[in-house]
Design a protein around this nucleic acid. Structure first.
Length: 172
DNA sequence: CGGATTTGACCGGCGC
DNA sequence: GCGCCGGTCAAATCCG
């Protein structure tokens, strides 16, 4: 159940501190972030960028990017907890985006897709909901605070979910 | 030798 | 107030 768009599983309520907008590559987003997404998509679209690990294995060059989104952290007022009146969904708080998150779901055997940036892994964690570990990367550039989070799909291990956080303030 | 990984520890937030 | 959970740090290690 790749419920990325929203999590009706309120039963747990532990995960999902942010919401994801499920958008296809064709769906139009009115946010300026879309431009960036587009950029990313285009970047990914170039198979030449798919260097991957030197495993030499025949990686399936059949990328299917799918999800992503723009969420904002901060301002997570616990005030919503009282939203017992049905669903207190409000997807209109997109006035200010403190941080931006873009998640790609790609079908690939290699988790590390070369997007042209140098990443330094700084952590690995096991998430409770998935048997697969989650890797944390950070842009190697000094003044670039972009972070990346890579994990495999819980249901489809053949899919890799890469979540970018922040924007690069430097060229490739 | 320098820099990237690794892996466990540490920490802060949220829920109960 | 305590414990769970996710995210980050940092020291030791590995690799080029």
């Amino acid at each position: 159940m790749s419920d990325f768009r929203n999590n009706p599983t309120a039963a747990e309520g532990t995960d999902d501190d942010d919401r994801y907008l499920y958008v296809d590559g064709s769906t139009a987003l009115e946010l300026s972030e879309l431009l960036k997404l587009d950029e990313w998509v285009e970047t990914e679209d170039h198979p030449s960028s798919f260097a991957g690990v030197s495993s030499g294995s025949t990686n399936s060059l059949n990328p299917v990017y799918r999800a992503f989104v723009v969420g904002h952290d901060h301002d997570y007022g616990p005030a919503v907890s009282a939203g017992s009146s049905g669903t207190g969904e409000r997807a209109e708080t997109r006035s200010e985006l403190a941080k931006e998150r873009v998640a790609f779901k790609t079908k690939s055997e290699v988790e590390v897709l070369d997007d042209g940036y140098k990443w330094r892994k700084y952590g690995k964690k096991m998430v409770k909901n998935s048997p697969n570990p989650r890797n944390y990367y950070k842009c190697s550039n000094e003044s670039c605070s972009v972070k990346k989070r890579v994990e495999r799909d819980r249901d489809d291990p053949s899919y890799v979910i890469t979540t970018y956080e922040g924007v690069h303030n430097h060229q490739t």
